[in-house]
Computed example of a mutant assay.
Amino acid sequence: EITGVVIEIDRWIMRESCKQLKIWQERFQRPELVVSFNLSGKQFRHADLPEVIGRAVKDAGLSKGSLAVEITESVLIDSAEEATRLLSEIRELGVRTYLDDFGTGYSSLSYLQRFPIDCVKIDRSFVSRLGGRKEGREIVRAIIALAQSLGLLTVAEGVERNSHLELLRTLKCTYAQGGLFAMPLPAAEAEALLAGEPRW
C-alpha cells in the first residue's frame, strides 16, 4: 500500500469483476445481477476515482446500477467535503453507493443525510443478535425503518441462520448476505451456483 501498487491491483480487480459480471448477466439472462466493490481509504482519496470506475463500467458494457461501491464510515470521516464530491460523481455514472458496517461508528445518522448514499449495510454484529434478546432485534428494526424512511436500500451482513433470514424478511430488509447463501467462491464455483438457480 505504501508503494501504491495496491491501487493498481484494486483497479485491475474492479475491471475484471465488471467483465465477469457482464458475462454472467448475458449467460444466465440475469441483467439484475450486481457486483459490489469495497473501496479502501487510499483508493477513495484518488481524485480520478470516478473516471476509473466509469471506464471499467463502460469497457465491460455494464448498464446503470450493475456496479456498487462500498465505503466505511471511517473513510468518510477523513475528508467529508471531498467524499461528498466523489460520491456524487460516482452516482452520476449510475453506480450505487453503499455505506458499509453501518452502526459501528459515532455519526452514522448524520451520514445518511449528509452523504449521497443509496444503501445501508447493517453490520454483522447487529445481525448476529437477532435470535437473542429483544433489544438486538429492535436495533435492526430501527435501522431498516430509518433507511426506508429516507428511501435507502438495506443489506444485512453476516446472515448465517435461516431464522435470521426469515426475521429479516419480516422486517422488510432489502437484501442479505452471508454464509447461509455461500462463502466467498472462485469464479467457476460462483458460476455453478448461479447455474443452479438457488432459492432461499
Rank of each mutant, 00 (worst) to 15 (best):
R141P: 07
E138M: 08
H164P: 03
C18K: 10
H164R: 01
T3A: 14
R91N: 11
D78W: 00
K58V: 14
R91K: 14
G178K: 01
T174N: 13
A80I: 15
T104L: 00
L109E: 04
S108L: 05
D118K: 01
E8T: 14
E8Q: 14
Q20T: 12
S66H: 08
I2S: 15
I90S: 10
R169P: 06
E32L: 11
V57T: 12
G41P: 06
S149D: 12
T97A: 05
G105H: 00
T97R: 00
P50H: 04
R11V: 12
G103M: 07
G103I: 09
E81S: 15
E70H: 09
R15K: 15
Q25G: 06
E81F: 13
M183V: 09
A145D: 12
K134I: 13
L86H: 06
F28I: 03
G132Q: 05
L152Y: 03
G61E: 01
S110P: 02
L109M: 11
L185F: 03
V34N: 11
E8V: 12
S74K: 09
V69K: 10
E82A: 13
A56P: 05
D123I: 04
Q113K: 10
R133V: 13
I139H: 05
I90K: 03
G132R: 03
V52M: 12
E26I: 13
E81Y: 10
E89Q: 09
F44E: 04
T97V: 15
S110W: 01
L180H: 03
S74E: 10
L153S: 09
L167T: 13
H46C: 08
S88H: 13
I117D: 07
V155Y: 06
G151Y: 00
P116T: 12
R141C: 04
L153W: 06
A147V: 02
K22W: 10
I23D: 14
S63P: 04
R30K: 06
D101G: 01
E8R: 12
P186V: 07
V127C: 08
E92H: 13
Y98S: 12
L171R: 09
L194F: 10
T72F: 03
L62R: 05
P116L: 10
V127A: 07
M183S: 14
G94A: 04
L165M: 06
P186W: 01
D78A: 06
L99Y: 03
E82C: 10
T104D: 00
A145K: 12
E191W: 00
L171Y: 13
P198Q: 01
L185W: 02
L21P: 15
